[in-house]
């Protein structure tokens, strides 16, 4: 559903979507004076310097580090692609992490995101208690690592957890967190629990902005409510769709805190971000090796961003 906005636009009209220079009038207004250029230079410059110095610079440095063996203290040693070879050949958590990241992304995109959209649509009907519902669905988003970890224990713990008690399985408990074939699903449940709130709140804002007369016009033309939603409402929320898509991808790739809080992302809960953290941040300090893992994650992330940007550029050219 969320991929709709990425589909090539069939409509012939893009004027409000495209650069704001469409009209002649715009061109006249938008001539830049020296003062404008100063403002632009200072503020864009500040943002750029921050971004380049603290984000892109370190990223490039990390790519370099991924070809070294370094514990952060001793001298750097160049090892070429050895780290990458080790990751693929002798590091068993890696493949599970890739699988889990893919699973995570798919689950968020195919289950959690549509559910969030559904909640938003249901809540957009100016019904009573809507603030309560909104707050309830959004609540998981604001919770910190500490309480998410605790809640996971509370619900999923094998012996004293609520879920096994609810299911009446005290005597034959399901090992929600310890069985490596099950635990990823239990954790995805928790991740979805959180993601739905994000998506709902963004779509809620988007839906409120859709002009009601649009829907009414569609209704007059004899479209059912579902048809109206898919043919009118959803496409008009294009900017929100893209934001939700990007958030979903970010969450899928950066997924970290829930598994980290449960068992540091081991025993079936491996994720790339956790492997990077474990190797780089912790006492372990396998900085070269961890950087190589991070670069792999980076390449996957860039795959998504490039796809998206190519799409945008293509639309703009039209």
């Amino acid at each position: 559903m969320t991929t709709t906005p990425l589909a090539p636009s069939a409509g012939a009209t893009t004027s409000s979507d495209g650069p704001p220079s469409g009209s002649r009038r715009a061109r006249r207004v938008r001539r830049l004076g020296p003062r404008d250029i100063t403002v632009l230079a200072v503020l864009l410059g500040a943002a750029l310097v921050l971004d380049l110095a603290l984000v892109w610079g370190p990223t490039v440095a990390s790519i370099t580090l991924s070809f070294t063996d370094w514990n952060g203290i001793s001298d750097l040693r160049w090892v070429g692609t050895e780290n990458y070879q080790d990751i693929v050949s002798t590091y068993p958590p890696f493949q599970r992490a890739v699988r889990n990241n893919v699973l995570w992304l798919a689950f968020l995109a195919l289950v959690a995101t549509p559910l969030g959209l559904l909640f938003a649509v249901l809540l957009d009907r100016e019904i009573r208690f809507t603030r309560f519902y909104q707050s309830a669905f959004y609540l998981p988003v604001v919770l910190s690592l500490a309480i998410v970890g605790f809640i996971a224990q509370l619900v999923y713990a094998r012996d004293y957890g609520a879920l096994n008690a609810l299911l009446g399985r005290e005597n034959n408990p399901i090992d929600w967190l310890g069985d490596p074939d099950i635990n990823i699903w239990a954790v995805l449940g928790a991740a979805g629990w959180r993601h739905v709130g994000y998506v709902m709140i963004l779509y809620l804002a988007g839906l409120k902005a859709v002009d009601p007369s649009l829907k009414e016009a569609a209704a007059i033309d004899g479209a059912s409510e579902v048809q109206t939603f898919f043919r009118v409402t959803l496409p008009t929320m294009r900017p929100i769709n893209i934001i939700v898509l990007v958030i979903t991808v970010i969450e899928g790739l950066r997924a970290f805190d829930i598994v980290y809080a449960i068992n540091n992302g081991r025993n079936g809960l491996e994720l790339l971000s956790v492997l990077v953290t474990e190797n780089i941040v912790g006492e372990a300090s396998r900085i070269g090796f961890g950087s190589a893992l991070a670069v792999i994650l980076l390449v996957i992330a860039l795959g998504f961003i490039v796809t998206y940007l190519v799409q945008i550029l293509r639309e703009d050219r039209r």
């Binding site: 950066r254 990077v276 994650l297 980076l298």
Partner: peptide, 29 residues
């Protein structure tokens, strides 16, 4: 909103920067 040369590049730079896993920055930072 401003006709800037290179606006696309800027957008790519900033957006892509956000997709980077934060762990990748830690050591150099």
């Amino acid at each position: 909103r401003v006709r800037l040369p290179g606006a696309r590049v800027l957008l790519v730079l900033f957006t892509a920067g956000n997709l980077l896993p934060p762990q990748v920055l830690i050591t150099p930072l």
